[in-house]
Amino acid sequence: MKKFLNIKIRLLMFSALIFLVSCEEEMASEEPVEPPIQNETPPAKAVGTLPVNGEPCSDYEEVSGDDSKVSVLFNWNSAQFADSYVLNVLEGSSQVFTGSFTTLNANVELDRGKTFSWSVTSVNEDGQTNGDSNSFTTPGTPIGNFAPYTAEIVVTFDEGTSEMTVTWVGSDEDGDELTFDVEVFEEGQSVFDSVDLTSTSIGPIGYMLDTDYTVEVISRDGFGNFSVARLEVTSPD
């Protein structure tokens, strides 16, 4: 009888041990598993090629039944990782056209005899990247005065001094004298702002390594017309 009791006790202890081990394994299996880290890959910048920046538009078609408009062809280069592209066309600060495309070109009907600026934003599921501003003038006699072309901006980084210099070229179809409002943004925060400049350069301005900068140049003539140019760059790391 005593032997039978010892065997029974041992069986109970063994069963309890199995139960504890299985509970511990179940609890361990229920511990939350961290999801794998997903690396986001925003698209590269799209570069506009047509209409040519700072020139009268030469690639257009007449609009049947409307002598006040022309159909302008826009082209841009393919951007790595981009799924689609958003074309924006402005007259001054007013948007006159926006559209999303999966192709690398589009035709847009615009008024004759006006200066327009345009840019292409590349898009994918991880984000979007803004392209640089370009400008052109549509054929025809202007009502009043042409707006200036968007300035062509160049940013130079001096890695020895960690300073950058911004230069630009402004032009106008009428040959008007221009003044410039210039603002520099560091990761979206303004670090330089000046208005009514007659010179075409600023700096040096200190910069941080591997940081995104946006330069905005507003070109103005003496008739109240203006254009807005933006350039986005990343400093060396």
Rank of each mutant, 00 (worst) to 15 (best):
T98G: 04
N134M: 08
T121N: 06
N225C: 10
P35F: 05
S190Y: 01
E183S: 14
A106C: 06
Q80A: 15
C57K: 03
L90W: 11
E216D: 02
V217H: 03
V169K: 10
S199D: 14
R10S: 14
T141I: 13
L11E: 07
T167Y: 02
K114Q: 13
P56E: 12
S93K: 10
L17K: 04
S227N: 10
E152V: 13
D176M: 07
T41K: 05
S71L: 11
L73T: 12
Q80E: 14
T198V: 14
S201C: 02
S84H: 03
N6C: 07
P139S: 09
L17M: 14
R112Q: 12
V184H: 04
E173K: 13
P56L: 12
S64L: 11
S133A: 13
L73G: 01
A44C: 01
Y207W: 04
T214Q: 12
N107L: 08
T141G: 01
S93F: 02
F192N: 10
D193T: 13
V86P: 00
V33G: 02
E187D: 15
F97M: 07
A79Q: 04
E173G: 01
Y207E: 03
G131L: 01
V217R: 02
N107S: 13
E183C: 07
V169L: 12
S64Q: 12
E232I: 12
N130E: 13
T161W: 00
N107F: 08
E163K: 11
V33P: 00
D83T: 12
V228Q: 05
K114G: 07
F185Y: 15
T141C: 01
E173M: 11
S58C: 01
T214E: 13
T103K: 08
S219T: 08
S171A: 15
S78D: 11
E232A: 15
Q189F: 07
Y149T: 09
T141N: 10
S190I: 14
N145M: 03
I37P: 00
V123P: 00
R220Q: 13
G140A: 07
P42S: 11
L11Q: 11
S122D: 04
I143E: 12
G203E: 11
G65N: 05
S162R: 08
T214G: 02
V33I: 14
P204Y: 06
A28Y: 06
L104C: 06
S84P: 00
E152K: 11
Y60C: 04
Y85E: 03
S135I: 07
T179M: 05
L209M: 11
T129S: 12
A46C: 08
Y207T: 02
G65T: 07
T41P: 00
T121S: 08
G175R: 05
R220S: 15
K3T: 13
F97H: 13
I218K: 08
E125F: 04
D126C: 07
T49H: 02
I37G: 00
K69F: 05
F116T: 09
S15K: 01
E232N: 13
N88A: 10
S133M: 14
I153P: 00
N39H: 04
V169R: 06
I18G: 03
M13N: 04
N124C: 09
N107W: 05
N6F: 09
K3F: 09
P32H: 07
I218T: 14
L50A: 14
N225L: 08
G206N: 09
N124W: 05
S171R: 05
E40H: 06
G131S: 06
G222R: 03
